[in-house]
Design a protein around this nucleic acid. Structure first.
Length: 426
RNA sequence: GGAGAGGUGGCUGAGUGGUCGAAAGCGCCGGUUUGCUAAAUCGGUGAUCGGGUAACCGGUCCGCAGGUUCGAAUCCUGUCCUCUCCGCCA
């Protein structure tokens, strides 16, 4: 959520930004409602002031008759206030609905474009895509041949988009978690395992809409809980409604959680296998920073994501995400796309991680502030980044490390946790 | 899940219908004292919205949401959370 005053004072800029980000939020209407809201609030303040005066005078009334007269006066004022308040509530609700739909402002260097076609490649990893002397398989075939992933079992038990990891895939999943965590703990992140469910108000605070028409979120019936789509939600919510001492910033957390996504309307190609699933495990990075620290933190998160994939020996590229593809909360976002030999005709890059600077957009909704040196408080900046999303990392590992004999070599950095250097058919 | 108790400012904690945005202590900031530190002492010290160049003025906020009342931190209802005891369970 943007600062309502900022929107009013920079309506043109906000409106242009909405266009670039493909949002149809009615900024003009918001400005108009906001003007009405202020006027109505001033009326109410005035009425309350009068009513307060009347109330105070009752204690000092000379006699019963005067007391009764003043009571009646007070009653009348409160009735008027109630009417004005109802009016104000209506206006505020309408204004807020628009405000919530207005996306964050965009970094001046973020490429302008309607969708991911406009994403700009800014960087590549240290490894080249592997060259195969044979036709590489995709991870679905590899997983089947090696007994690693059971999609049919998942479909039977839970439905399409679910799967069982089996045998060495389980060890790989744990190894990937351990590997990512190992890097992050050395970097001073506080490791956490977060709840997989969160209150809807926390989801909303982080910019996820639990029960909207285009939601990605599973809601729990008869409760105000939803399954989280990422630990970004729980980690961001962790400090909601707190006022921090500036000295504790930046706070760097990482969290392991399961991620649940309905993927409504996301069917079709490129969704084969593990690429787009309803549940996966993820190690997420999260930071709360001072405003002037967030740009560096975003680059740092991006560097860490690169380090993790360089360490895995997998080729990737990093793209600066176009305005139309940023979603609501992000001010700037870098996606890391790993080389997936089994994807498309002869291999393609596929998104494996993503890091965003949400500036104060989430913090404002979540009420996360810090004490400034001067009088008062200000909103912190929040950032999130994927350290490792297991399902997609598995795709990259299996497809890049496959061998002519159908086995898969275990990346060096994972061997101490997988306990072997090669995965072969049982 | 059952029974009790409780949620007040950065912290501890008083406050059971008006004089309470709220005692006191701690912490923090500033002054005095002091060779320095400590101690002592005096003063200041919540958030948020609106108005004003500013001093300042006004509204709202005592977990959250409603209700009663001219008036609520205080009474009532709901809700969330915490603690204690019991039950259940990995």
């Amino acid at each position: 959520m943007l600062d309502r005053r900022y929107v009013v004072e920079h309506a043109d800029r906000v409106e242009q930004n909405c266009q670039r980000r493909g949002s149809r939020a009615d900024v003009r209407q918001f400005v108009s409602l906001e003007t009405q809201r202020k006027a109505r609030q001033a009326d109410i303040d005035q009425l309350n002031r009068q009513a307060n005066e009347v109330s105070k005078s009752i204690g000092k009334a000379k006699d019963a008759a005067e007391r009764e007269a003043r009571k009646a006066e007070g009653r009348g004022l409160r009735e008027k206030t109630a009417e004005a308040q109802a009016d104000l509530d209506r206006i505020t609700a309408a204004a807020d609905a628009i405000l919530r739909a207005i996306p964050n402002m965009s970094h001046p260097e973020a490429p302008i474009g309607v969708d991911d076609q406009a994403n700009l490649e800014i960087r590549r990893g240290i490894h080249e895509p592997p060259k195969f002397a044979f036709k590489p398989l995709d991870h679905v075939d590899l997983g089947e041949k090696l007994g690693l992933v059971d999609f049919e079992g998942g479909a039977k038990v839970t439905g399409h988009g679910f799967y069982f990891l089996k045998n060495d895939a389980v060890l790989l999943e744990l190894a990937l978690q351990h590997y990512a965590l190992d890097v992050l703990v050395r970097e001073g992140f506080t490791p956490t395992i977060t709840p997989d469910l969160a209150r809807n108000e926390i989801l909303q605070g982080t910019g996820y809409i639990p029960r909207g028409p285009e939601t990605q979120i599973y809601s729990i019936a008869d409760s105000d809980l939803s399954l989280v789509a990422t630990a970004e939600i729980t980690l961001g919510g962790l400090l909601s409604n707190e006022i921090l001492d500036a000295g504790v910033l930046p706070v760097k957390l990482c969290g392991i959680s399961h991620c649940y996504r309905t993927e409504a309307g996301a069917g079709g190609r490129a969704a084969r296998g593990l690429y787009r699933v309803h549940q996966f495990t993820k190690v997420e990075m999260f930071a709360f920073t001072l405003p002037n620290q967030s740009e560096d933190m975003l680059n740092y998160f991006c560097d860490l994501e690169c380090r993790i994939f360089d360490g895995l020996g997998i080729a990737y590229r990093v793209v600066d995400t176009a305005t139309g593809d940023l979603g609501g909360p992000a001010y700037r976002k870098f996606d890391l796309e790993a080389w997936m030999p089994g994807r498309g005709e002869a291999g393609e890059y596929g998104e494996v991680t993503s890091t965003s600077n949400c500036t104060d957009y989430q913090a404002r909704r979540l009420g996360i502030r810090y004490r400034t040196g001067e009088k008062g408080t200000a909103f912190v900046h929040t950032l999130n980044g994927t350290a490792i999303a297991i399902s997609r990392a598995l795709i990259a590992v299996l497809e890049n490390y496959q061998q002519a004999d159908g086995s898969v070599v275990v990346p060096d950095v994972l061997r101490k946790w997988v306990g072997k250097d090669r995965i072969s058919a049982l």
